[in-house]
Write a protein that binds this DNA or RNA. Structure first.
Lengths: 190, 190
DNA sequence: GTCTATAATGGGATAGAC
DNA sequence: GTCTATCCCATTATAGAC
């Protein structure tokens, strides 16, 4: 069971660095220290591995969003934590989050995975919309018009910011792209 | 020379639909009606083809931006035209612009192509910044803070909007993600 | 310029021993 | 569960005839 986890983690790491089509069983073999053929014991086909990798990621990310909602003392803190999550996924600028990597290579995904991706986007957007609704009440974010539009824009912004930062290989590119949104947040200082 | 052009156009079309790693000489062969081996006469290696495809795209896009600057009667019209350009590249939701496709697969690009991509991003951002500067003068865009930050955000927004729209295969996803920005534009009606 | 033929490599996947 | 050995297929690329 340990090998299985190592395979999933390694696969995700490589997929986030080089794209979904950028990793092979040979790569996994080299990283995990197990022969190519043995991988098929844990994941019969690459699609099986892809699907499980994505499902695990979606579950992990959505539970993180729930956690943020619980702890945030204001809408602004929620958006701030959301931005931070995407920023962290960039590492030093060499990797994007799995959903960006998979969105880009959408056409080579198994159909089921496309459904998972769609569901993930929908839920992310829904979560963001609820945060922007909260902002209309607590006034912690400036100039919120339609929460639904703000949510769609924020999702596109963070994904696009990861994309441009990946090209420059520099987290500061992400920071600059998200600076305008951050500037609208009223955060308490300690 | 006609074959050469057909190869470049077909390669770009497929790359924008399936990703940079998603097309092969066999695909080109099928579409253009020429044998695989013959493609090597026009483009010795795939990297050669990739590079020329990108250079051509960058040149075409930047000249379009220049044209927009020339014709726009206000900053708002400039941003509007910019959004429209990215929207059109989506077609029915099945293809992204070449820079998004290549950004995603950055790590499998030849080094020279990465340089071209970087230059493209820098110039796009610079162009956008000049438009937002103009907006501070003509007041055709609401609530412009730092032109540089607005530019970085706008670039990330349109690229991300293409990414999310590609997942849903629906242009309206792009429209929703860019609605908030569009709402800030003061456009004259005819 | 385009063809056929053929490397040479790397991909995912299976069979069967241990 | 992991191994070796092997298969089949797709890929980029080259050689040489036409």
């Amino acid at each position: 069971m340990d090998t299985r986890i190592a395979l999933l983690e390694t696969a995700e790491m490589i997929a986030r660095q080089r794209g979904l089509n950028g990793f092979s069983y040979a790569d996994l073999s080299a990283h995990v220290g197990i022969r190519k053929a043995s991988i098929h014991y844990h994941f019969p086909t690459k699609d099986d591995l892809t699907q499980e990798m994505l499902d695990q990621y979606v579950q992990r990310f959505l539970s993180r969003l729930a956690e943020i909602s619980d702890r945030a003392e204001s809408a602004a803190q929620g958006v701030d934590a959301y931005l931070t999550a995407y920023r962290e996924a960039l590492k030093d600028g060499g990797s994007v989050c799995l959903c960006v990597a998979m969105s880009a290579d959408r056409d080579s995904l198994p159909a089921v995975a496309v459904e998972s991706l769609n569901a993930f986007q929908k839920q992310s957007e829904h979560w963001l919309a609820s945060v922007f609704e909260r902002a209309q009440a607590d006034r912690s974010i400036l100039a919120v018009s339609s929460p639904a539009d703000e949510a769609a824009a924020a999702l596109a912004l963070v994904e696009g910011a990861q994309l441009v930062a990946r090209v420059t290989q520099d987290v500061s590119t992400f920071d600059k792209a998200t600076a305008a949104l951050r500037a609208r947040l009223s955060l308490k200082r300690n």
